[in-house]
């Protein structure tokens, strides 16, 4: 089971990076979501697949009756899921407003590539920039 999960994780990561590299920012967000999922699976797998019992202590008991799934990675994943969710939503809204500003979400467009204003362009001669 583990090796299959590892392969699933790897393929999801590949897909996520491929989407991120596409230069289409919406697909970047898709990649982000996918990568988040992949990482969660990775942590889960790294915490080892154990017996299918959830880590819950039965009523009237003070300790686990039977070996259960590893609880710690689950807690970490829960944190990671929520943080990932917050980041994704933020990125989404950021893109939404960026689109208002640039009218495009194609990161290969000049509007995205230009990092400085015209007057800030690198100017190696030390001469004044002509406007």
């Amino acid at each position: 089971m583990e090796s299959f999960l590892a392969i699933v994780v790897g393929l999801m990561v590949s897909a996520a990076f491929f989407l991120m590299l596409s230069g289409v920012l919406i697909r970047f967000v898709f990649g982000l979501i996918l990568m988040g999922n992949a990482v969660n699976l990775l942590i889960f797998t790294a915490g080892r697949l154990a017996p299918v019992n959830p880590p819950l202590i039965g009523a009237k008991q003070t300790l686990l009756a039977a070996p259960a799934a590893n609880a710690l990675p689950q807690a970490l994943i829960l944190t990671a899921i929520v943080i990932g969710f917050a980041m994704t939503i933020f990125m989404l809204i950021l893109l939404f407003r960026t689109h208002d500003q640039t009218r495009t979400l194609d990161a290969d467009q000049d509007r995205f590539i230009l990092e400085t204003d015209k007057t800030d362009l690198p100017d190696i001669t030390g001469q004044k920039v002509q406007e």
């Binding site: 590892a6 392969i7 994780v9 393929l11 590949s14 491929f18 590299l21 596409s22 080892r48």
Partner: peptide, 20 residues
């Protein structure tokens, strides 16, 4: 891009396997 992505996936998969 595809090659790089696949490479990244491969690296993470195998490292994960190593961990396991």
């Amino acid at each position: 891009d595809a090659c790089l992505s696949l490479g990244a996936g491969l690296v993470l998969t195998t490292v994960l396997m190593g961990v396991l």
